[in-house]
Design a protein around this nucleic acid. Structure first.
Lengths: 134, 134
DNA sequence: AACACTGTGTAATAATATAACATTAATATA
DNA sequence: TATATTAATGTTATATTATTACACAGTGTT
């Protein structure tokens, strides 16, 4: 734990929404989040989207782009959301964050034809999970 | 050209929409497509989405998930949309399809912790393009 | 105090995508 | 040829996802 890397204190709305996503076994969609936090006083879509934007920015959650849904980061080293990879089951829609040193190293070092390197990426793998394969 | 691999004949709507996307120097969004083809008799969003779905399915176009936009496939070998990679400039939004044998081989062979292999994936790299870097 | 910055609350609306139903065209097979 | 089947179309309405615009509150500076 680096003291310089101050733990980002969440605001009330951010904390409520992060807790909900973090508890969820599956990615949550914005309006489903909204529905679930209305009893806590968060009434409008914008309140949800603002918290989501911030949580994504600081790397506490990730957006699954192909599903328009959000998942808590389970990659402890992930302070900033800049290099993400997921596996997605096309039947049950289970999503798992992939943390593979080899993969992240390969992608972080990947250069395109012009020799350009990219520090930020998002990768989504699709297939069938163990359960759904049987 | 394999005779068994019949060239998919596009229907009228599919052809109109493919031509438009193919001509476009940048990814196009569904409602922008709709606006542009209304003079050709395509009047409703659903007509556009149906054509887009089919075109994606047969690999003639790809969806840029992080942008909700569509780009024509420029990877001649891409008969089916199952393994895609793009670079996206965060300033000018220029999108380029990456065709790297090394990358696609690496990803096609990637196994997660459970030994699971995925035949389908989508990868989006973010950064600054040449022009925007200067 | 004045200012900048971040977050909040609220209403309205924009942008993206699908459901449901009726019809027509294309393909296949009896 | 007839008929069954599948894929595509046309249309209306609606669902889902996300942002704009504006007013205000808290915190930390200068």
């Amino acid at each position: 734990m680096n003291k310089m890397q101050k733990e980002h204190a969440l605001t009330k709305n951010q904390q409520i929404i992060f807790d909900l996503i973090d508890k969820s076994p599956e990615p949550m969609k914005a309006y489903s989040i909204l529905f679930n936090v209305q009893k806590k006083g968060i009434k409008a879509p914008l309140q949800v989207y603002r918290a989501l934007d911030k949580l994504v920015e600081i790397g506490k959650i990730h957006k699954i782009e192909s599903r328009n849904a959000f998942i808590a980061c389970h990659n402890s080293s992930c302070q900033v959301a800049k290099a993400t990879a997921f596996s997605i089951c096309e039947i049950c829609e289970k999503v798992t964050e992939i943390s593979s040193a080899g993969l992240s190293k390969y992608l972080a070092n990947f250069k395109d034809k012009d020799g350009m390197k990219y520090s930020k990426y998002n990768l989504e793998f699709f297939g069938l999970c163990k359960k759904c394969r049987t």
